[in-house]
């Protein structure tokens, strides 16, 4: 579904060059959920943003659904992958009602839309249809994140890119959102690429986990590896030890 070959991201400012992502290869099969863990600045979010075309300055080869992608994305390219952002407060237009937030993608993509379609999208993420009249500031963080997921899903992309979708949320709300994401994946056979700093979240959601450090993948883990806290690369092992700190003590 996603094939990335020899992928590099470099930012140049004057004479200094910042090599953020260094020659990555990544393949994600249809219906798979792959997680990327790493610390701030390791390049995991940059990779995601390049995939959807929010960031330029990358070199290499990106293929989604068999189609090679360039720097400029057409509507067909955009329809194949949508993204859910970290901050539920910044990701909704503050002056648009929820109904508008959900009908805008349909309108921009030239898809038929109706109040029923919006209501169905809200229902799919566990919100009542009456929320269409509300403004984002009248919603809690978890509810906004549900709207953001509904907005990403409304144009029915086969791939969802999740950039720290729950790290701004409370634990109990995080559980609700993660359950919602699992349910939608089971239902629609979606492909997920989940980026997070939280090993526990990634281990819960994903079939495969890639550990990223300084712009490269240093290790590939399965949930079983994490359950047994076994890794071969020292950084992956360290990350695992400190993430599961509570269990060690």
């Amino acid at each position: 579904m996603i094939r990335i070959r020899d992928f590099n991201v470099r930012y140049r400012s004057g004479k200094t060059e910042n090599h953020v992502v260094r020659g990555i290869d990544l393949t994600v099969a249809q219906g798979e959920c792959v997680g990327i863990v790493g610390e701030s600045g390791c390049g995991k979010s940059t990779l995601l943003r390049c995939l959807v075309g929010l960031e330029s300055g990358w070199t290499g080869n990106i293929e989604i659904d068999g189609q090679s992608l360039g720097a400029v994305r057409g509507k067909d390219d955009l329809r194949r992958a949508q993204m859910v952002f970290q901050d539920p407060f910044g990701s909704l237009h503050p002056r648009h009602r929820i109904g508008r937030a959900l009908s805008e993608p349909l309108r921009c993509m030239g898809l038929p839309g109706s109040p029923q379609r919006v209501a169905a999208a809200l229902k799919e993420v566990g919100l009542p249809a009456s929320f269409a009249h509300r403004f984002p500031h009248q919603l809690s963080g978890g509810q906004r994140q549900r709207v953001a997921i509904a907005r990403a899903l409304i144009i029915e992309p086969p791939i969802l890119l999740l950039d720290e979708p729950t790290s701004a949320l409370d634990v109990s709300v995080q559980a609700e959102i993660l359950n919602l994401l699992s349910d939608r994946r089971d239902e629609r056979g979606l492909t997920y690429l989940l980026v997070s700093h939280d090993l526990a979240v990634v281990a819960h959601m994903c079939d495969r986990i890639l550990v990223m450090q300084n712009g490269v993948f240093v290790e590939e883990l399965t949930p079983d590896n994490i359950r047994l806290a076994k890794a071969t690369h020292p950084y992956a092992q360290h990350l695992m030890d400190v993430s599961l700190l509570s269990d060690a003590l």
């Binding site: 959807v52 075309g53 929010l54 509507k75 955009l78 949508q82 993204m83 952002f85 970290q86 901050d87 910044g90 990701s91 909704l92 237009h93 503050p94 805008e104 993608p105 921009c108 993509m109 953001a148 907005r151 990403a152 144009i155």
Partner: peptide, 17 residues
């Protein structure tokens, strides 16, 4: 650079919009 503008870019909103 707000996320909601980025999200709009992802659903293909035009420059003028």
């Amino acid at each position: 650079n707000a996320d909601y503008v980025n999200a709009a870019r992802l659903y293909g909103a035009g420059k003028l919009r």
